[in-house]
Nucleic acid binder design. Structure first.
Lengths: 244, 244
DNA sequence: AGGAATTTGTGCGTATGTATC
DNA sequence: AGATACATACGCACAAATTCC
């Protein structure tokens, strides 16, 4: 049984509309299908010609969408074979753009997060320079890899991005943004340094200086969406970047 | 006077040849023109139609090449305006894969490095697990952005990659590898954490804990080439990653 | 082993929309 | 307002890699 793509989602691009280009709509539609589980990891998409016909688009436009998805790492394209969904729920869930790994490199157990508090607040001074709204959702949480507590985290979702239902947050915040608010985080900048733990932290690390990550994240429309600060235990975790 | 592109470089793609696809050839040719200074930073490329005609290719193929260059950050494409060269020689030279930036984000002055020592040695225990040879070139140096000392660095080039002429090293080590040994660094992994300065450091930071980066770098053939450890002053610099 | 069928990759051309100058 | 220049979209032919028989 081959998965049938929805056709409904595509909007007309008239001269007065501000809708996304068709190839981006297609890419987002497929991303949604993956994120919501209707397309499983490893599954093969229909052949390009068939899919293009089903979606009522040309091969070229579909290929542009598939190229975008491949660049985002959501599918793998194999010449002569097909297009395959590449979705690691665990990574996409807690890691997301995040790249904290256990120092010993193992840490293949389940990443977990525990929310300490989640409230809609006026922004504090530390984040006042970020975003368009003067309020936002502040989430504070602890993070584990396997059974090791590795980080303390404070996340601000800008008020202009919408207001989260804080009661139903999951470990996969970025997916929550997408599902609850239709906000897709498309780009981010991480700055890594050293800082002491915040006073509100309910836990302490073995040393009094922690690794410190400031992240700013933007939507695909270029709007600032999220600002987060993460203090990680240098005895337990490292921040990893794989280049190229 | 508009810059004239060379046409010579493009090779035929016959059925038996292993040449790169045309759009990649074009992208590499333009990259070369930029790297060798014939196309300066900020310069505008000819209009796509003119350039396509000059290169004897179609608009679509040229646009694919330009898209690749844009994705690599070598040009910026502005609708209705043109394609502009974006090349920061200093960044490409010294930074290379490196991503230390000044905390205030400015730091557009010249990055500089001062070599403390460079010797061919048997590997120390700290790097014995890396590479294929049991010896290598060890380089220790200090690094500045503008006039601020930001980092202390120890770099091991694996002996199997060749033996550097340590007397003629420049600030652009990766270019030295390429020029002296024909070794191209193609991929790297950075792990960022916190650590005290090494005992051999001739300088101290204001705090006794520094940011700490371990980098492992591989050649395009997948051979481990370089292992480096960088201690940076968290008061002066942050390690920055731009995602997507 | 090998050839045919399938599927993605490359290249070409054209028409129209939209942003910039 | 007009000209210029990049962006999107459509469609086709053939090459190259994979898969299947």
């Amino acid at each position: 049984m081959v998965y049938q793509f929805p056709v409904t989602a595509l909007q007309k691009t008239t001269s007065e509309s501000t809708e996304l280009p068709k190839f981006q709509q297609i890419a987002r539609m497929i991303t949604r299908e993956i994120g919501e589980g209707r397309l499983a990891d490893g599954e093969r998409l229909p052949p390009e010609r068939a899919l293009a016909q089903r979606l009522g688009t040309s091969i070229g436009t579909l290929r542009k969408a598939l190229g975008l998805l491949a660049a985002e790492g959501r599918i793998e394209r194999i010449q002569g074979s097909g297009n395959y969904v590449r979705f690691d729920a665990e990574r996409d869930a807690v890691y997301s753009l995040f790249r904290l790994e256990r120092r010993d490199g193992k840490g293949q157990g389940r990443p977990r997060a525990k929310i300490l508090s989640a409230r809609y607040l006026k922004k504090s001074a530390a984040v006042s320079g970020f975003g368009r709204s003067d309020a936002g959702t502040r989430i504070r949480r602890l993070r584990w890899l396997d059974d090791a507590l590795i980080a303390v985290e404070e996340i601000w979702l800008d008020g202009a991005a919408g207001r989260l239902d804080t009661a139903s947050l999951t470990d996969a915040l970025y997916r929550d943004y997408l599902n609850q608010l239709n906000v897709q985080v498309a780009r981010a900048t991480d700055a890594v340094s050293v800082a002491p733990l915040p006073r509100w932290s309910p836990v302490a690390f073995s040393a009094d200086t922690a690794g410190y990550i400031e992240r700013t994240a933007w939507s695909s429309e270029g709007e600032p969406v999220e600002f987060s600060r993460t203090w990680f235990d240098p005895a337990e975790a490292v921040y990893v970047q794989r280049l190229r």
